[in-house]
């Protein structure tokens, strides 16, 4: 039974990783670089909820919406100020720039909110017990439901809207998209908005599940990247599966190894994937 409980925890962690990895994958698909500031965008998202929900005492759902919007807008502003200037450069310059952006964001977070650890709500939540002794906390239900809703919304966006299809087209072949008359700048803006919102959601859920502190996003960046690579980087659907696999493996691993090595499990899985099938196991795109 303990195993099932770990699988449940793994699914919760996996949901968080999946949301993060989908964001990474979307930006990679369109802009062709691994965004190293994605983790710190997650942290921003988590702190905005801390302000709106914990400090201002507004409802959680409202705080989440505000956070998604603020983080998305911030991401778009960063693009306008910095990343846009590198459109014609080698994408690795973007990667280096995003690494710098990660530190800029983190130091801003530390300046504004200080280095200490915060929680959204004080006190211990009572776990709900159900079938076979499994336990789940109300916050964790929010995470699971929230993730499912966001992923459905993303799916509908990518499949049903003109902009969503254009995003997939640019990910498929950016030059052809341009020749087809697709406004790639608009697609890029849209990608950043979605990437930022998804990062915020992942950060908020991570904050709900654990705690909020300045390094939370950076610390989880490795498993998020591992999930994205596992799913075939650039393929948002694969990233969801990748997130779940990494999340569940990390939780199950605590049966055998010291829990502080959870990120190492993600790394190990990633290394195996890079060796046997670098395009990802979920029918990723070739690079």
């Amino acid at each position: 039974m303990e195993i099932l409980q770990l699988v449940l925890y793994g699914t919760i962690l996996g949901s968080i990783l999946a949301l993060g990895a989908v964001g990474v994958s979307l930006t990679f698909g369109i802009l062709r670089f691994a965004n190293f500031s994605h983790g710190d965008l997650m942290t921003i998202g988590a702190y905005v909820v801390f302000v709106v929900f914990t400090v201002m005492k507004l409802p959680l759902w409202l705080a989440i919406i505000v956070s998604l919007a603020v983080t998305a807008a911030l991401t778009a502003i960063i693009d306008k100020l910095i990343y846009r200037n590198f459109r014609n450069s080698d994408p690795v310059i973007l990667l280096i720039s995003s690494f710098g952006m990660a530190l800029i964001l983190r130091s801003l977070i530390q300046l504004i909110w200080g280095p200490s650890t915060q929680v959204y709500e004080k006190g211990i939540q009572l776990a709900i017990k159900f079938g076979g002794g499994l336990r789940i906390k109300p916050d964790q239900i929010i995470i699971l439901v929230g993730t499912v809703l966001l992923i459905i919304a993303l799916h509908l966006f990518l499949r049903k809207t003109k902009m969503g299809k254009a995003m997939r087209a640019v990910a498929d072949n950016a030059e052809l998209a341009r020749l087809t008359g697709i406004n790639t700048e608009k697609v890029i803006l849209c990608t950043w908005l979605m990437g930022g919102a998804l990062a915020a959601a992942a950060g908020i859920f991570l904050g709900l599940d654990t705690r909020v502190f300045p390094e939370m996003g950076w610390n989880i960046l490795l498993p998020v990247f591992a999930a994205a690579i596992l799913g075939g980087i650039g393929n948002p659907y694969g990233a969801i599966a990748g997130g779940l696999v990494i999340g569940i493996s990390q939780e199950l691993s605590t049966q055998f190894i010291d829990p502080s090595y959870k990120p190492a499990v993600a790394f190990a899985i990633m290394v195996v994937i890079l060796i046997v099938r670098p395009t990802g196991i979920f029918a990723g795109r070739s690079s």
Binding site: K162, A169, A171, D172, L176, L179, T180, G181, I182
Partner: peptide, 28 residues
Amino acid sequence: RRGICYVPQTNNVFPTLTVHENLEMGAF
């Protein structure tokens, strides 16, 4: 927009988009 369309020699469709979606993108 001026009314010239170009079909390149290679890689001239979006492979993961459906046929229908490819046509829709043509009318972007």
